[in-house]
Amino acid sequence: MRYLTDRKRAVGKGSAHSGAEHHWYMIVSSVALAFMVPTFLYIFGNALGSGYDAALATFQRPFPAILTGLVLVVGLQHFHKGARVMIEDYTQGSTRKLLIMLVIGLSYALTAAGLFALAKIAL
C-alpha cells in the first residue's frame, strides 16, 4: 500500500500539468455555490420588480451586498473555468486560444462591473 492520496497521484499528470488543481477548484467552487446560490436567489428574486427604493434598500444592507459579491466572484470563476473546458473540447489552435481569452476577459469584466455597482449602491 502506498501512502499517497488520490489527488497526489493525479497532480502533474496530463499535458497541461494543472488539471488536478482545475478539477479541485471546480469542486470547491461548486460546494460554495451550492450553499450561496439558493439564498442569493431568494434575495434577488424578492428585489427584482420591488421598485427602485426597495431594491436599493435591499442591496445597501451588508448581507445581500456581500453575498451578491461572493456569488459574482465565485460564480464567474466557476464559469470561466467550466467554459474553458468546453472550448478545449470543441476547438483547436488560435480559435481555442482566442475564445479562452475572451471568456476569461468577459468573466473578469462582469465581476468588476458587478462589484463596482455593489460598492456604489452600498457606500
Binding site: 462582469l110 458587478g114 455593489l118
Partner: peptide
C-alpha cells in the same frame, strides 16, 4: 447559458447604482 442571466443581473445592478 447562465452567462445570459449573469449579464442581465449585472446590468440590473449597474442600473440600480
Amino acid at each position: 447559458a447562465l452567462i445570459v442571466a449573469t449579464f442581465a443581473m449585472v446590468w440590473w445592478l449597474l442600473a440600480l447604482a
